[in-house]
Simulated assay, not measured.
Amino acid sequence: MQFREVQGDLFTAPPNEALAHCVSKDLHMGKGIAVPFRQRFGGVPELKDQGPEIGKCLTLVRDGRPIYYLITKVNERYFHFPTEDALRTTLLAMREKMLSAGVRALNIPRIGCGLDRLNWGRVTAMIRDIFRDDPVVITVYSLE
């Protein structure tokens, strides 16, 4: 696994590479980076048809690009916060989807750490641990 952090806009990532972000079970997507995901890719009914549950990874495909929606909010609603355990479960689910689909490049924001308030150092360690033996490049985009 290769892990790198860059400054810039996540939506400038190469169009053939996967994207991912965290959402609540209700798929509200009304704040933070979830808003441009909803605006750019739509698909809320398609996501709801996949049966959103906490710990699950939902997928949309747009122009051949997988877009992963990690259901991390423990109390189901958009204004609640995730736990590290919920994030770990969704990352493992996403990993399985990525490996089975042959996805080798993933672009993410600092998942779980903006409005969701998890500790980026701990989340980074978690991502590195989960993907440590996999042939994947993970690029984290930050506007800071």
Rank of each mutant, 00 (worst) to 15 (best):
V23S: 07
V140K: 09
E5K: 12
N107S: 10
E144N: 12
L91I: 06
R77L: 14
L70E: 06
I67N: 00
H80W: 14
L47K: 09
V123K: 06
G55C: 05
S24E: 12
G55W: 04
V140H: 11
K97E: 12
R104I: 04
M1D: 09
D134I: 02
T89L: 05
R132K: 14
T72N: 08
I138F: 10
I108H: 08
G42R: 08
R88G: 00
P36I: 04
R117C: 15
R65W: 00
L87E: 00
M94R: 04
T124S: 13
R122I: 13
C113Y: 09
E96Y: 02
Q7N: 11
R38D: 07
A86D: 09
R132M: 05
T90N: 02
V140I: 14
L118P: 12
N119Q: 14
G112N: 07
N119T: 13
V74I: 14
L10E: 04
G8S: 08
L27I: 11
R65T: 01
L99V: 14
R132Q: 13
E76V: 10
R104M: 07
V44I: 15
V61S: 05
H28S: 15
V136R: 12
L27S: 07
T83H: 10
V74Q: 13
M1N: 09
L10T: 03
V140N: 06
T89E: 12
C57I: 02
L27C: 09
H21D: 05
E53I: 02
A125M: 03
V61N: 01
Q7W: 06
L106S: 02
K73H: 15
L118N: 09
I54T: 15
I127G: 05
P14G: 00
A34W: 06
N107G: 03
V137Q: 14
R65E: 00
R110V: 09
R122C: 03
A18D: 02
F131K: 10
R104E: 09
D9A: 00
P109N: 10
R38L: 14
V35M: 03
Q2G: 05
D116K: 07
T90S: 15
M1I: 11
G42N: 10
D26A: 11
V44Y: 12
D63H: 01
E53S: 07
Q7A: 10
I54M: 13
G30V: 09
C113G: 07
S100I: 01
V136N: 11
D26L: 13
N75H: 15
R38E: 12
R65A: 02
D9V: 01
Q7T: 13
L47F: 11
L10S: 02
N75Q: 15
D133C: 12
L106F: 03
L87F: 01
R77C: 10
G114L: 12
Y68V: 01
S142F: 08
V44R: 14
N107A: 03
K48N: 12
P135S: 11
K56A: 11
R65P: 01
R4A: 04
T90V: 11
S142V: 11
H21W: 02
V137F: 06
P82K: 08
V103C: 08
T59L: 05
L10H: 02
R95P: 05
L115Q: 09
I54G: 04
R128C: 08
G32I: 11
L91N: 01
T139M: 07
